[in-house]
Every structure is written in structure tokens, then in C-alpha cells.
Design a protein around this nucleic acid. Structure first.
Length: 595
DNA sequence: TGATGAGCCGATCTAAGTAT
DNA sequence: ATACTTAGATCGGCTCATCA
């Protein structure tokens, strides 16, 4: 039997006789021709006309007019439905762009959003939660991608507006009344995490645990366990600062709450895992090594000073001064290495190519068809990096093992220190705080910059670089006439032309190697020294090792591995993931199905 | 009516992939 | 190795809304 369809002839609201639009809500744009008539026809057939587009199942627009909202359908949908007595496919009556499509910047095909929509508290909440989720998944909060996705979900504002709003207004200060944390894998439109439901099957003993974990999500748990080894490794004097940093990165809880959760819940579980003693042993070992290293350096210095007192030679003394400056820093570095890393290169001094490298490393894959490799950016990881480098952490997690190669290199890449999202997101970073330019300064610079044609700018850049290169070449050439090469601080290699820098690095390594072996002989130590070295790649990047050292399989020198010792015995490596897994396993009895 | 802030748009730069 | 293409990120500036 054909459905009843009522076609009203008066403007008064007719009774809903027909059921064609039963259960459907419609939002009719104001500029719809014969709008009142369509309202009547919808209501007469069981449809609801709502005042907010968010409440509507369908947005009815005039397909003839430009600027129809994304996902809107034409009034012809209503006409066709009434004519046929059945609901047609809305896709056949699209008025605006298909839902989920994002207008490309500058598109002349799709009209821009002509009207501006004020951001409501609800918008802010949605935006904040969206960005927080994206951040926890490693997305770049300053990029466009996550905002495009948001626009696809919520077209109240274009993606640039969402982005602007977040960066200018919300960044660093969540909107009032926002439940900050959203589970990383929650569905895109899911409300904030519900309060933790009590586990009715839980026995008495679990009630206390329940109180401790209340308010902390699975995400929170994962964030902390991922950093367990780092947190344990923190020096007591840094703990306060570290939790503050963590709370900044994960604002769902205060520093105090995070600390309590860690100390009362996760740490006890961690202590019962096999990972814990190994981490502690690693910390001890690291500390001992640093002490020994510092002692050896001091001894070496004493001997050299004594030696040079007897040979009063001016150029040599000059070199020593430079060497002493470097060693002073090394000594200081060694003393502080267990808790903090030095920042060897100021940001302003980074070469252009280094900055490019940083951008490259910070950037998120951009092409959908050819996705770039995603660099996982974890706020929690950043937190850990405040105080421990990856190498240090790995060192803690890996039981001390014999070196497998004399050509091993101590990695201490200055670039590493400078490349964190913390910097761009306004979270304090030791290296960035003193050099970060104000927005005002940057705007001014850019304005001046923009007035110069691109080609000219590029030429100018090249000219400047050439001048600097020339000067450095001169200095280097002069030094090469000396019977011993002038020391060039590895931290300054980025300032040299590639080939010269590599030569200097090589010379320094040779010299240090010889000196080190000599000293080691004097000190009666084994000579399996590990030499620190860097070189500059063609792209300007400072890499560990000498030019030509290949970390891959092509290399003739076997890569350093902590996994296999010299005897070839395979030692299962205790990774960060393993530690996490161990803690999870340990805590499993008290956290089943909770999240 | 002018000042100010906010929403929005588009130009430009940059990096990565692809073709030659 | 280089040029070209494509797409994302960033920022300047225009326009609108609000308020004194």
C-alpha cells in the first residue's frame, strides 16, 4: 500500500497525517524559496523542523544559490519524496559539497564561508578535545591536518578558523569547564571519558586501588608507564620540575596528582617487575661511568698542564686554551650528564640547513597518496627528554655490555637537543627559551623579507653563506700549515663548509684518538676507547661518525649493537616497550576492564 | 565613527615525491 | 643530479563584529 503523503494548502501547521518523514529532523536555511511551504509539508508528513543545524538529520538548502553548507541537500529532496511517496537518496540531491569535504585554501570552485560565526563555549570545548586527542596521537597541533579533519566533522568553522582559534586563544589555556583528557582511541564524537565505574566484581582488596586510580584514564596510565624508566632515573632535585613539565604536557591532572598517581600506583607495580632492578642497576652503572670519565679527564688535564709548563711554547698554549675550554665543558657535562644535557649550539647559530632539517623532522606526513613517515610526537616523551636523552634512557634499560667495535661513536647530536615540539608549543625548553623570537619580531622580519623578491633573497642567502665560508676556509687553511691541526670544536662544525668541516672532524678524531691512546697508556688503562666524532653531511646535517661511515649494512664496520655481545651471545634487550608491558602485566589484576 | 579583536582568506615557503 | 609537481604549514592582511 502506498504511504499517505499530505500536501497542505494552508500556512497553518497541519496535523502529521503522513509518515514519510517520520523521525527525521530538518534544518531549513533561511534563504530557501517558499520556505514556509516546505516547513508545512515536512511537518505534515511527520518531519520535525529544528532551529539548530546540529540537531538536524538533513540541512535543506537552495542548490541554485552558491555557498550552500557542506552536506546540505536541496529542497528538491522534499519535492521528490512527496512526489514519489518514498525517501530518495539524499546523495542525489546534494546542494553543498559532500559532507566531509574540506574547501581547499583559495579555491574558486567552492565559495568561502562568507559569514563569520562566533566561537561558542561548545565550539571551544569541541576544539580543545579534538586537538588534545590529536596531540596524544602524535598529530601536529600547529599544522592544518587535524583542523581539516575537524572541519570535515564539524563545519561550523573552516579549518583555518579552527586552527586560528586554537593557536591564538586556546593553546595553553583550556576553555573553562572542560574535562581536559580524551581517550586516544575514543570515537571521534565521543564525549569526554565517563567517570571510572566501580567494578562490582572486584573484591575488597581492590577498593583501595580503585580510589587511587579514580580519575585517571587508560591514556594517563599508558603515558606514565611509557615514561617509567625515565621517571625513575630522574634526580631528586629535578623531580618537581619534571612533574610540572608533565602536567603542562598532559594537563588532565595537576603535577601533584600525577606524582601521587605515580608514587601510589604505578611505581609500586613497577618495583615488582624484573625491569625495575635493571633500571636501577643501569642508573648506578651510568653514574659510575660518568664519575670515572670525569676523573680520567681531570687526570689528563693535570698531566698536560704539567707537561706544557716545561715547554713554554706560545702557539701551543693557544691551542691548549681552546682545548681547556672544551674540556671544562666536557667536565661540567660529565658531572651533569646523569640529569641534564648540555645545549651545545645556540639556536641562532644553527645553519640554515639545520633549521631545514629540524622542520623536516618536526613535520608530519602531508600527502595522503604518498604518506610521509610520521614522527611520533609524544608529550610524555618530551617530558622525559627534558632530563634524559634517548641514549641515556636506553643505557638505563640495557644491562651493561661489552663494546663490539672500537669504531663506536658516542652520540651527542646537538641537533637532537633543539628539535622538540615543546618549543613550538610554548612549553619551556632549555634551548629555546632564550632564543625564541617574539611574534612581533618575527612579523617584522617577515614583512621586510617579503619585500625582497624570492630569487634575490636566495642569492643573498648564498652570498652571506659564501662570505662566512670563505672566512672559515681561510682560518682552516692557516691552521693546516701548523704542524698539528687546529682544534675545531665538533659543536661548531655546522658553521664550516661541508668538506672542510669533515676534514676538521677527521683531524680532530685522529688527534684525539692518538692523544687518548697515549693518555690511556699513561694511565694504564685498556685502549679500547670510544672516540667521539661528528662530520657534516652535504645537506649540512651534523652526523655522528666520520664521513663515509655507513650505519647500514653497506658499511664494512659492523654497527654498534647492544643486542649482541662480543661473544655473540644474544642478550634479550629490555626496551621501553618491554618495561611498559611488564608494568601492565603486573598491574593487570588491579586494572581489568577498567578502561 | 573609530579602535580593536576575531574570523577568515590567500600568498608564499618548504619539503617530499616523481620524472627526466 | 636536477627539475618539476604536489601538498602541507605558516603568516600577513582583509573584513566583519563589537564596543566605547
Amino acid at each position: 500500500m502506498a504511504p499517505v503523503v499530505l500536501v497542505p494548502h494552508s500556512t497553518s501547521v497541519p496535523p502529521a497525517v503522513g509518515g514519510l518523514f517520520n523521525g527525521l529532523a530538518f534544518f531549513l536555511l533561511q534563504r530557501l524559496p517558499s520556505r514556509a511551504s516546505y516547513v508545512d509539508r515536512l511537518q505534515a508528513n511527520g518531519g520535525r523542523v529544528v532551529k539548530l543545524e546540529q540537531q538536524a538529520d538533513h540541512l535543506i538548502a537552495d542548490h541554485v544559490k552558491s555557498g550552500c553548507p557542506s552536506g546540505s541537500i536541496s529542497y528538491t529532496f522534499i519535492d521528490a519524496a512527496i512526489k514519489d511517496g518514498t525517501l530518495p537518496d539524499p546523495k542525489d540531491h546534494l546542494a553543498g559539497p559532500a559532507p566531509g569535504t574540506v574547501r581547499p585554501v583559495g579555491s574558486t570552485v567552492a565559495p568561502g564561508k562568507r559569514t563569520r560565526t562566533a566561537f561558542t563555549a561548545e565550539d571551544d570545548r569541541v576544539l580543545w578535545e579534538w586537538v588534545e586527542r590529536a596531540r596524544s596521537e602524535g598529530g601536529s597541533v600547529k599544522g592544518n591536518e587535524i583542523y581539516k579533519q575537524l572541519e570535515a566533522k564539524n563545519s561550523r568553522h573552516p579549518h583555518q578558523a579552527w586552527r586560528d582559534r586554537y593557536i591564538k586563544q586556546l593553546m595553553g589555556k583550556p576553555p573553562p569547564g572542560v574535562e581536559v583528557k580524551v581517550a586516544a582511541n575514543a570515537p571521534s564524537n565521543a564525549p569526554p571519558n565517563p567517570p571510572v565505574a566501580p567494578n562490582k566484581d572486584a573484591d575488597e582488596g581492590e577498593e583501595e586501588e580503585e580510589e587511587v586510580t579514580a580519575g585517571f584514564s587508560k591514556d594517563d596510565f599508558e603515558s606514565l608507564t611509557a615514561e617509567a624508566a625515565d621517571i625513575v632515573a630522574l634526580g631528586e632535585d629535578r623531580v618537581e620540575e619534571a612533574w610540572q613539565a608533565f602536567a603542562t604536557a598532559w594537563p588532565a591532572h595537576t603535577a601533584e596528582e600525577w606524582r601521587t598517581y605515580w608514587e601510589d600506583t604505578i611505581l609500586p607495580a613497577f618495583k615488582e617487575t624484573p625491569a625495575y632492578p635493571e633500571v636501577i642497576a643501569g642508573i648506578e652503572q651510568k653514574r659510575r661511568e660518568e664519575e670515572e670519565k670525569a676523573e680520567r679527564r681531570a687526570e689528563r688535564r693535570r698531566k698536560r698542564t704539567a707537561r706544557e709548563k716545561s715547554v713554554d711554547e706560545e702557539p701551543r698554549a693557544k691551542r691548549r686554551d681552546k682545548q681547556d675550554v672544551k674540556e671544562d665543558r666536557d667536565l661540567k657535562s660529565a658531572n651533569e650528564a646523569s640529569t641534564a644535557r648540555q645545549t651545545p649550539v645556540k639556536l641562532e647559530e644553527m645553519s640554515h640547513t639545520h633549521k631545514q632539517k629540524r622542520r623536516r623532522e618536526d613535520s608530519v606526513p602531508q600527502s595522503a597518496s604518498q604518506p610521509r613517515r610520521k614522527k611520533h610526537v609524544s608529550s610524555a616523551a618530551d617530558f622525559a627528554d627534558l632530563f634524559t636523552s634517548d641514549e641515556e634512557v636506553d643505557g638505563l634499560l640495557v644491562p651493561p655490555q661489552p663494546r663490539s667495535s672500537k669504531r663506536a661513536v658516542i652520540a651527542d647530536d646537538p641537533i637532537e637537543d633543539l628539535s622538540t615540539d615543546r618549543e613550538v608549543e610554548g612549553i619551556p625548553n632549555r634551548s629555546s627559551m632564550k632564543v625564541k623570537k617574539t611574534v612581533h619580531e618575527k612579523k617584522g622580519e617577515r614583512r621586510e623579507h617579503a619585500q625582497i623578491p624570492v630569487k634575490q633573497r636566495r642569492q643573498a642567502r648564498g652570498d652571506v653563506a659564501d662570505e662566512a665560508d670563505e672566512q672559515l676556509r681561510g682560518e682552516l687553511a692557516a691552521s693546516q700549515n701548523d704542524e698539528r691541526p687546529t682544534l675545531v670544536d665538533v659543536d661548531d662544525l655546522s658553521e664550516l663548509p661541508t668538506s672542510d668541516a669533515n676534514r676538521a672532524a677527521e683531524q680532530q678524531v685522529r688527534r684525539e684518538s692518538a692523544e687518548s691512546m697515549q693518555m690511556d697508556g699513561e694511565l694504564g688503562e685498556a685502549s679500547d676507547k670510544v672516540i667521539g666524532a661528528k662530520h657534516v653531511e652535504k645537506d649540512g646535517a651534523v652526523e655522528d661518525g666520520l664521513p663515509g661511515d655507513q650505519p647500514d649494512s653497506k658499511s664494512k664496520v659492523p654497527p654498534v649493537s647492544n643486542d649482541v655481545d662480543v661473544e655473540g651471545l644474544v642478550e634479550p634487550r629490555l626496551t621501553r616497550e618491554n618495561a611498559m608491558a611488564a608494568i601492565r602485566e603486573k598491574m593487570a589484576p588491579v586494572t581489568p576492564d577498567r578502561w
